[in-house]
């Protein structure tokens, strides 16, 4: 018996090892959401991010000079814009006082740098130089000056991993800014798409897409992208709407984490997908 096993091992050892390793990988794949796996992963990337941070800082220094002059120009333009908005703000708060509407538009944001990127076609992730110590928590939205970048997936003490919109595991409720049509947006491996949009819905190329109030993760209106086409699916009653994101994920360097103060009641809702096990 032992001889037979030995003969099989000798003849097929490459395949046996391959099979064993694949089985282990599949077991690990199924244990992905377990807290122990998440904890181990956060200590690994937390450690590695220290080195990424050094390289990222060195690369940034070379860019600062050229960026500074363009930022000065942007600052001047923004200053003029702010002045105008300040006037609107005063008018707005006066009108809200008159109508008795509560101001809910203030969100605390935290500035962060992208220190490393995994630009995989299916699982885009960024590592940010802010973590638990800065009170960053999984599920917080990450934006830049153009729009939504992604969602914080995991945090270590000083770093956090963000799943960008170009990640198959990110689905967000979005809305057509013009027609107010809601839908679920996800990355299909090559495009951002809003799935299962009834053909009768009013969505047209050129429409701006923002995050929807119905979203349990990004419940404030953040720009996401613009409709560039409809994948007309011949059979069935649904269309797929193709979106071009405002954010260029390849060049993104500085981002902001929106430290949303989530409602505990809303957090515990069954439909909040971030809490779903």
């Amino acid at each position: 018996m032992f001889g037979l096993l030995l003969a099989i091992w000798k003849k097929f050892k490459e395949y046996i090892i391959l099979l064993l390793l694949l089985i282990i990988s599949l077991i690990i794949l199924s244990a992905n959401q377990k807290p122990a796996a998440k904890k181990a992963s956060s200590s690994f990337y937390g450690f590695f991010a220290n080195f990424s941070s050094i390289i990222s800082d060195a690369l940034d220094i070379t860019k600062y000079k050229s960026e500074n002059s363009s930022l000065r120009k942007t600052n001047a333009e923004m200053m003029l814009e702010i002045n105008k908005l300040r006037q609107y703000g005063i008018e707005n708060s006066e009108l809200k006082d008159l109508l008795g509407i509560k101001d809910t538009l203030h969100y605390p944001i935290l500035s962060a740098n992208v220190i490393s990127k995994s630009l995989s076609r299916s699982q885009g992730t960024f590592t940010l130089n802010v973590g638990k110590k800065d009170s960053v928590r999984p599920g917080m939205p990450v934006i830049n000056e153009f729009g939504l970048v992604g969602i914080v997936y995991s945090t270590s003490a000083n770093y956090s991993i963000v799943r960008t919109l170009e990640n198959l595991d990110v689905s967000i409720t979005v809305k057509d800014e013009r027609s107010r049509v809601d839908g679920i947006m996800k990355w299909n491996g090559s495009n951002l798409v809003i799935i299962n949009v009834p053909k009768t819905y009013d969505v047209e190329p050129g429409d701006r897409i923002i995050t929807s109030d119905l979203s349990s993760i990004v419940a404030m209106p953040v720009p996401v992208g613009v409709v560039i086409g409809l994948n007309n699916i011949e059979t069935g009653i649904f269309n797929e709407v193709k979106i071009k994101p405002f954010v260029n994920f390849v060049t993104t360097e500085n981002v902001f984490v929106i430290k949303v103060v989530e409602s505990k009641e809303e957090d515990n809702l069954e439909l909040n997908f971030y809490n779903r096990k």
Binding site: E14, I17, L18, L21, L22, I24, S25, L26, I27, I28, L29, S30, A31, N32, A37, A40, S41, F44, Y45, F48, S116, S118, S120, Q123, T125, T127, Y153, S154, I161, R163, D169
Partner: peptide, 24 residues
Amino acid sequence: TILGFLYGFLFDMITGSLLGSTMI
């Protein structure tokens, strides 16, 4: 084969990808 498994494990751990996908 073993090296691929190890690289995949480290890659998934470090980049925050779905643990196990790169391993396979």
